[in-house]
Nucleic acid binder design. Structure first.
Lengths: 226, 226
DNA sequence: ACAGACCTTGACGCGTTCCTGACGCGGGCG
DNA sequence: CGCCCGCGTCAGGAACGCGTCAAGGTCTGT
């Protein structure tokens, strides 16, 4: 989860921002003045900072400068002032975006997403990883290992595993898997499923003849047990 | 000098942007429609793209999507439409900033500066120097050495190495590499990858027939192992 | 104009993957 | 009790992807 630092002195707006961002499952650290903001950023670095220009204790520009001295965290500025000079000052001080009050919450959150996305590009993404006691699957980087040793899966095996693992614990009909992996029109080729699940089990399950994670529900479909 | 691609159909505004940005000593490539924009971006990649949402030949969102398929270049959107839904759509399609017309030139240029600055921040996880037990790559100064001795890579080889090394340990699809290095439309030319990876391995790997760092995952893509 | 480096393109051999059919097994049903 | 359907297993042939090599074409610097 990504942590956002909100620097806003007006309690009503601070509360509104906090609630809205938490609702989108960000971790939010709300503070009310610049000194607290710099302190919070230093102790536990956030992934993005939202700062109001009109703070009681110090100018928002100073907060930006204080952060930029040692951090490249994305900064979004909030301000009631709409003058060009003010925007230029904030952006050139190191802000990444400038939003004028009043603003729409949807737009604001979209700008937060954009800023996080831009900053995250170099990050070594820990993509969706599926873990069981016996093997782990990294769907993003297409890595699979069973009891520590790397296992190689073929393209169709990956495709089939993904289609099933996407719904953990759920029962997925064979026709649905066939349509997703081989395309519409292959719903009758249940042979494929038998052959490929046999290979997948041989590579990933401890006892391929008695699968514990890639389970067949006779007559219904298949299920992945985490 | 940094090159900016301006996509704006209205001649007056296109001219005004070009003049103002050239006055700040940017190199400006002005085009009038989306097709020309994608063509220009593919032939000589810009450092930043400014795109108007209201284009004669295609929706600006399509231009953004077309660029984002293979490039992470910063994109600033211009639009006369002020609706939140429109802004969210553009930002989520991959735009970095959204400026509503009419806008002040000073603010606009400041946003250009901010976007360029953000894109320029060196990638934290993979610094400009990549090191493995057998060879070292300095992406910034385009120098490579294997076991101490200098090795020369051609421009295309560098481009391909960069595209892959940017995601260490991750699997990168062949089509993605082709689009990034040769441009969109070359996704089918898998020959290029085989030829160039053979050359790269011959120059950098200890045993080119059994590569340890530039690994190919049959049917899936390629992977760089640090 | 010439030589060299670089990029593109095609052909060939090899290994792997995918598809297909056949066989055996076990449970449900008449 | 015997039949049938669904599932797991196995093996062989076709098709595909990859590595390698070599030749032609383009561009650059001399």
């Amino acid at each position: 989860m990504q942590r956002l630092l909100i620097v806003e002195d007006e309690p009503a707006l601070r509360r509104a921002l906090t609630i809205n961002l938490r609702a989108r499952s960000y971790e939010v650290v709300p503070v009310g003045d610049g000194a607290a903001a710099l302190r919070a950023a230093a102790t536990s670095p956030p992934d993005l900072v939202v700062v109001d220009l009109g703070l009681p204790d110090m100018d928002g520009i100073e907060v930006i400068a204080g952060l930029r001295g040692w951090s490249t965290v994305p900064i979004i500025v909030l301000s009631a002032r709409d003058s060009q000079a003010e925007k230029v000052r904030a952006l050139d001080a190191g802000a990444d975006d400038y939003v004028t009050k009043p603003f729409g919450m949807d737009e604001f959150v979209a700008r937060v997403r954009a800023a996080l996305r831009r900053a995250d590009i170099p990050q070594l993404s820990t993509g969706p990883v599926v873990t069981t006691p016996e093997f782990t699957l990294d769907l993003a980087s297409k890595r699979a290992q069973r009891e520590g040793v790397e296992v190689k899966l073929t393209p169709t095996e990956w495709h089939l595993v993904e289609a099933l693992v996407r719904h953990p614990g759920m029962l997925v009909a064979g026709t649905q898997l066939l349509a997703e992996v081989w395309g519409p029109g292959f719903e009758k080729e249940t042979n494929y499923l038998r052959v490929y699940f046999a290979q997948i089990r041989r590579k990933l399950e401890a006892d391929p003849s008695q699968p514990r994670h890639f389970v067949t529900e006779p007559g219904l479909g298949y299920r992945f047990e985490p």
